[in-house]
Amino acid sequence: MKRVGVLALQGAVREHLQSIEACGAEAVSVKWPKDLESLDALILPGGESTAMRRLIDRYGLMEPLRDFAETGKPMFGTCAGLILLAETVVGEDQPHLGVMDVAVARNSFGRQVDSFEVPLEINGIEGAFEAVFIRAPHIVSAGPSTEVLCVHDGKIVMAKNGQFLGCSFHPELTEDHRITAYFLSMIPSKSDLLLPN
């Protein structure tokens, strides 16, 4: 069974854990570096990116998370999670993990009264997906190897860059598990991982 972690410092952790289980994988809460061991993939959930970042620094998670990215295992960030993954955060000197080749702007759809939900067409997902945007960021620019999966209102709101998947909205706030299933399909099957002796 695939083991998928959710960074559990703060935010919509429970919803992601449930979605992973609904897709038939084992869901693991990640609070400490040791929790990253033996995971096949990791989700960085929605929440407040500044709060999560402080806890990442305080508990020595930054290097282990970057090491996890180095292994090539899939990582998926939703909203605040996308901000944590991005190589550039507009208006800030330093990124957080800085592993996904995209530049992200925070709160780019306005304040909470401007938050919205809208059905979107997403490349690789059949049929419309109800996307919930809450004080959401968007992808301002993406590197050449990045595959844009969804654009809303002229803004990139979902993209894939190699092992990294990111979206501005919150699939975890719906009962629709297709995006989680899409992410789980990015985990190589065991036979792909067999190394030549």
Binding site: C79, Q112, S115, E117, F133
Partner: peptide
Amino acid sequence: MSQHGTDRVKRGMAEMQKGGV
């Protein structure tokens, strides 16, 4: 077709605060 101020958008904002102060 985008909708503002739905229950999901309003309750969802609080979901993002979970585990926080």
